[in-house]
Amino acid sequence: MKYDALLARLWGQLKKLEQEVLQHDAALPPQSRKLLQDTERFNDELFLQHGAALYPCIAQIEKDIRALEKRLQLNLSAGTIVAACARINDRFSAVKRALGTTAIGVKAQAQAKDSARKRMASRQHQQHDNSGFAWIAASVMQNSHQLYDELNKHLNWARKIESKLGELETMLENCHGADKIKAQNEILLMHRRLGKCRQAISYIEDRIQAFERPYQSHNR
């Protein structure tokens, strides 16, 4: 079968990723599990999964690879095969990124909850600054708040793009002629947008790590 090498590579990638995910999930602190227990780490078009543990994603990627095997056996159109491979690769990339950003996700959730509590407290109580130094705390934390807000914004954009990709890939299987070409072009455009969004997410995560590194070193 001419696609044996492709399938072997995908199964090898999945086996390696499974080991990394098992190590990740085993090392999760209870507090991280609690903070992310109701959080969807991915768009539901990409994975039906929520919480800190990532192992549920492995079974879903395995299901996709098996579906690809069947499509290859049926000699379906190249466009359908390309779309299926792109989806599998997107899932691999999403899990790999999630492996490295769990701590940041925990921090973002803690920050979001803290911000929500502060907004509620601000509405309930009209606090007066009688110390004269409240502006110092605000200026110190300003960059951190902005970075996490920006991270959450880009993560939401990425989920929306992934959702759109899922819709287009489903539509592609039922398209023909000019409609199929149009759908393929839209898929390529969405992949480019998703790539740029992920680059932005990586940049913001790097800035967060750079911002917090001095505080982490100081607290050791």
Rank of each mutant, 00 (worst) to 15 (best):
A86R: 08
G105S: 06
S93I: 09
Q124N: 10
A83I: 01
R87I: 08
D114Y: 09
F92R: 03
K113I: 11
Q111C: 04
K118Y: 07
A84F: 03
D114M: 09
L76I: 12
T80S: 06
A78Y: 01
D90N: 15
T101K: 03
K96M: 14
Q127N: 09
A98W: 13
R117T: 06
R87H: 13
A83P: 00
S77Q: 07
K113Y: 13
I104D: 01
A86Y: 01
Q124K: 08
R91Y: 11
A84V: 03
T101Q: 08
M120C: 05
Q126P: 02
F92K: 02
A98S: 15
D90A: 11
R119H: 08
A86W: 04
R123W: 10
V106Y: 04
A83W: 00
T102Y: 01
N75Q: 11
A110S: 02
K96Q: 15
V82L: 10
R97S: 13
Q124E: 09
R97I: 05
T80L: 06
A110G: 05
V82S: 09
Q111T: 06
D90R: 12
T80C: 04
S122K: 15
A112G: 03
Q124W: 07
A78D: 02
Q111W: 07
L76E: 10
S115T: 11
F92S: 04
H125P: 00
S122Y: 14
L99K: 03
A103V: 07
I81P: 07
N89G: 14
Q111K: 05
K118N: 09
A94W: 06
V95L: 13
K118D: 11
A103T: 10
I81N: 08
